[in-house]
């Protein structure tokens, strides 16, 4: 096979999955925890209830998945913003390492926070 092996399909899948997950879940979370609960539009669940919810393994898995995908979505988009917007394609390897590295580091932080919760 003459095709050049490239990690692009993998990072694009993370990018597109991240865009989809963030678009579906983040507005709902922002609406609930940023507007509806603080402003009293909806009955606010008490702390013990929320803590129990977050401590459930399924919730942790969903939140972890959302964090990882959203971070890689950012990394991919920011990488191309630097490439094309600022015309920095000459430093492409460095940019890719910094962007995806930051997303990977953020994923580790998110995982640690969720595991300790």
């Amino acid at each position: 096979m003459s095709r050049r092996r490239s990690p692009e399909p993998l990072v694009w899948l993370l990018f597109s999955g991240g865009g989809m997950a963030a678009a579906l879940l983040v507005p709902v979370l922002l609406f609930l925890f940023g507007l509806a609960f603080p402003l009293g539009w909806l009955p606010t669940p008490d702390h013990a209830h929320l803590l129990a919810l977050v401590e459930h393994p399924v919730t942790k898995l969903v939140l972890f998945g959302l964090s990882v995908l959203a971070l890689f979505h950012w990394a991919h988009r920011f990488r191309y913003t630097l490439y094309d917007g600022l015309k920095l394609k000459a430093a492409s390897t460095l940019i890719a390492v910094v962007c995806y590295g930051a997303a990977a580091a953020g994923s580790v932080v998110a995982g640690t926070v969720l595991l300790l919760a």
């Binding site: 096979m1 095709r3 050049r4 490239s6 692009e8 694009w12």
Partner: peptide, 15 residues
């Protein structure tokens, strides 16, 4: 058509 379309100069160049 994968060798042409799925190359770096193919769909992966599109942002």
């Amino acid at each position: 058509r994968r060798d042409v379309l799925a190359s770096a100069e193919g769909v992966w160049a599109c942002t």
